[in-house]
Computed example of a mutant assay.
Amino acid sequence: MLRVLSTHLFLNQRLHPGLLELAARSGAQAVEIFAARQHFDYTQREDVRELCEWFRSNELQAFSMHAPMFPDREMGRAGAPSVNVIHPEKSRRIDSMDEIKRALEAAEQIPFKNLIVHLGEREDSWSQRTIDYAMTALEHLGAFASALGVRVLVENLTNDVTTPEHLMLILELGHLDNIGVCLDLGHANMTVGIPEAITTLSKRIVSLHVHDNHGLKDEHLWPGDGTINWKATTERLNTLAAPPAAVLEIGYTLGDQPAAIPDRIRAAYNRLELI
Rank of each mutant, 00 (worst) to 15 (best):
S6T: 11
N12P: 11
Q13D: 15
L15A: 07
L15H: 04
H16E: 15
P17C: 07
L19I: 04
G27E: 02
Q29L: 10
A30V: 06
E32H: 04
E32P: 05
E32R: 04
D41C: 08
C52V: 09
W54G: 12
M65N: 03
A67C: 11
P71V: 07
R73S: 08
E74K: 09
A78W: 09
G79C: 05
V85G: 01
P88W: 00
E89M: 12
R93K: 08
D95M: 12
D98N: 15
D98K: 14
E99Q: 14
L104F: 07
E123I: 14
D124R: 09
S125C: 14
T130K: 02
I131N: 08
T136I: 11
A137V: 02
L138C: 07
L141E: 00
A145P: 05
A145I: 09
R151W: 06
R151Y: 07
R151S: 14
L157S: 08
T158V: 13
N159M: 08
L167S: 01
I170Y: 04
E172Q: 11
E172G: 04
H175K: 09
G186M: 01
L201G: 02
H209R: 02
L216N: 08
K231V: 14
T239S: 15
P243Y: 09
A245S: 06
A246H: 10
L248P: 00
E249V: 03
G251A: 04
T253Q: 14
G255M: 07
I261Q: 02
P262I: 11
R271K: 13
I275Q: 12
